[in-house]
Deep mutational scan, measured.
Amino acid sequence: LRLEVKLGQGCFGEVWMGTWNGTTRVAIKTLKPGTMSPEAFLQEAQVMKKLRHEKLVQLYAVVSEEPIYIVTEYMSKGSLLDFLKGETGKYLRLPQLVDMAAQIASGMAYVERMNYVHRDLRAANILVGENLVCKVADFGLARLIEDNEYTARQGAKFPIKWTAPEAALYGRFTIKSDVWSFGILLTELTTKGRVPYPGMVNREVLDQVERGYRMPCPPECPESLHDLMCQCWRKEPEERPTFEYLQAFL
C-alpha cells in the first residue's frame, strides 16, 4: 500500500490517493489515533465489506491497528460538496442534479434492503467520479466515533443540521433518520452546496425544527421536489418515504 497524494483533511483524519497491490488506484482514509476503537472498527469493517453495490464506494481493505487505515475505490472528482461548490458546479442544471440524487437514493435503497443504517448521509460523504457518477461513502463509521465533541451530539463536530430530530435528541438512528438526511442533501444539491438552514446555528436549528420549522423551497427548485424534501422531514419517522420510493420518484 503506497500513500501518494494527500487529498484532504477532516476533523478525524486525512484522505490520500495511493496504490494498492502495486496496480490498483485507491483512496486511503487514515484516522487520528483515539477516534475509534480498533476492535469496534474491525467489526464494522466486516459488515462494510459485505455491502456491495454500484452506488456505494467499495471497501477494499482495512488496517485495524492505530493509525487505522481504510482502503476504498478511488473517485476522481472528490466529495459531492466540493464538486457542487467548484468550477463544474456552476454548469450543473436541475436534470443532472436530480440524476445525482437518484443515484444516491439507489445506493441508499440497497442499504435499506440490507437493514443497515448510514448515520451520516450528506454531500460531504458522497463521492463523485467521471460522468457525474455518484456513490455513497463512509457508511456506518459515524457510530464508532468516540470523540466527546461528537458523541455528545451537541458538540461542534456533530452534523446536527443533517440529523433527524429523534436521532439528534435521543440517539434513535434508523434508515428513517437517513431519509431525513437525504432530504437535507437534496437542498445541498439544489443550492450547489450551500450550508443548510443558512444564518442559523446548530442550537437554533434543533429548537426550530422541533417546533415544526422546515426549510423553504430553494430558488429555481420545482415545488414537486420541495414537496419530496418535506416528506423526508415528516416528524414521525414511519411517515417518511422509503429510499425505494425516493429512487422511483426521482
Rank of each mutant, 00 (worst) to 15 (best):
122 R>N: 02
176 K>M: 11
60 Y>H: 12
172 R>N: 04
194 R>S: 10
180 W>G: 00
240 R>V: 01
9 Q>N: 05
5 V>N: 14
109 A>N: 14
174 T>H: 13
55 K>Y: 10
142 A>T: 06
157 K>P: 15
32 K>E: 01
86 G>H: 13
48 M>T: 02
22 G>A: 13
176 K>L: 11
117 V>K: 00
99 D>R: 15
106 S>C: 14
81 L>P: 05
142 A>Q: 00
226 H>S: 11
10 G>T: 00
110 Y>N: 05
202 N>W: 01
150 Y>S: 02
39 E>M: 10
78 G>V: 02
97 L>S: 05
141 L>K: 03
246 L>R: 01
191 T>P: 01
45 A>I: 03
214 R>C: 09
208 Q>M: 14
190 T>E: 06
42 L>R: 01
23 T>S: 09
55 K>P: 05
155 G>Q: 04
180 W>K: 02
52 R>S: 15
22 G>K: 14
172 R>L: 04
226 H>C: 09
246 L>T: 06
61 A>H: 14
218 P>F: 06
38 P>V: 08
94 L>T: 06
87 E>R: 14
99 D>N: 15
218 P>N: 07
189 L>N: 03
33 P>L: 11
46 Q>P: 02
184 I>T: 07
211 R>A: 09
214 R>T: 12
13 G>A: 05
20 W>F: 10
177 S>P: 01
118 H>V: 00
238 E>M: 10
38 P>Q: 14
29 K>S: 01
149 E>H: 08
173 F>P: 03
110 Y>E: 06
150 Y>H: 03
27 A>S: 05
75 M>K: 10
52 R>F: 09
25 R>P: 12
79 S>N: 15
11 C>A: 12
128 V>G: 04
181 S>K: 01
200 M>Y: 09
94 L>C: 07
83 F>Q: 07
26 V>G: 08
208 Q>F: 15
128 V>Y: 05
236 E>F: 10
149 E>I: 13
13 G>R: 03
117 V>I: 15
128 V>I: 07
124 A>C: 07
169 L>R: 04
113 R>K: 11
234 R>G: 10
242 T>D: 15
109 A>H: 13
225 L>M: 13
181 S>F: 00
6 K>V: 15
77 K>V: 10
148 N>T: 09
179 V>L: 07
185 L>F: 11
37 S>V: 04
216 P>G: 09
180 W>A: 01
222 P>V: 07
225 L>C: 03
244 E>Q: 09
171 G>T: 04
170 Y>G: 06
182 F>N: 00
75 M>N: 05
95 P>N: 07
83 F>V: 14
12 F>S: 01
107 G>L: 00
206 L>W: 07
143 R>Q: 04
128 V>S: 04
170 Y>N: 07
236 E>V: 12
110 Y>L: 05
128 V>T: 06
219 P>A: 12
200 M>E: 08
10 G>I: 00
231 Q>R: 10
65 E>S: 09
126 I>W: 03
247 Q>L: 09
19 T>Q: 13
95 P>C: 07
114 M>K: 11
111 V>R: 00
32 K>I: 15
71 V>R: 01
130 E>T: 12
217 C>K: 12
126 I>F: 01
235 K>W: 07
111 V>E: 03
144 L>I: 08
18 G>E: 01
235 K>G: 13
180 W>P: 02
2 R>Q: 08
113 R>H: 14
108 M>K: 03
233 W>A: 07
79 S>V: 03
170 Y>C: 08
43 Q>N: 13
35 T>F: 06
57 V>G: 09
84 L>F: 08
196 P>I: 06
71 V>C: 10
10 G>D: 02
164 A>C: 14
4 E>T: 15
181 S>Q: 04
215 M>A: 06
216 P>W: 07
154 Q>L: 09
45 A>P: 03
239 E>I: 12
93 R>H: 07
239 E>Q: 13
25 R>G: 11
231 Q>K: 12
227 D>V: 12
188 E>L: 02
30 T>W: 09
65 E>I: 13
203 R>P: 12
233 W>H: 06
100 M>R: 04
39 E>R: 13
184 I>H: 03
99 D>G: 14
11 C>T: 03
61 A>D: 03
66 E>P: 13
165 P>D: 00
125 N>C: 00
168 A>T: 05
235 K>D: 10
116 Y>I: 15
170 Y>K: 09
243 F>V: 15
211 R>E: 08
213 Y>E: 05
28 I>L: 10
11 C>H: 13
226 H>M: 10
237 P>A: 10
42 L>M: 06
217 C>A: 13
151 T>H: 14
42 L>Y: 12
150 Y>V: 02
31 L>C: 08
157 K>C: 11
48 M>F: 02
118 H>F: 04
66 E>D: 14
170 Y>H: 07
99 D>L: 15
85 K>V: 12
174 T>N: 13
75 M>E: 07
217 C>G: 10
173 F>Q: 00
121 L>S: 04
28 I>T: 13
152 A>G: 04
13 G>Y: 05
219 P>C: 14
234 R>Y: 11
107 G>D: 03
102 A>T: 13
156 A>C: 07
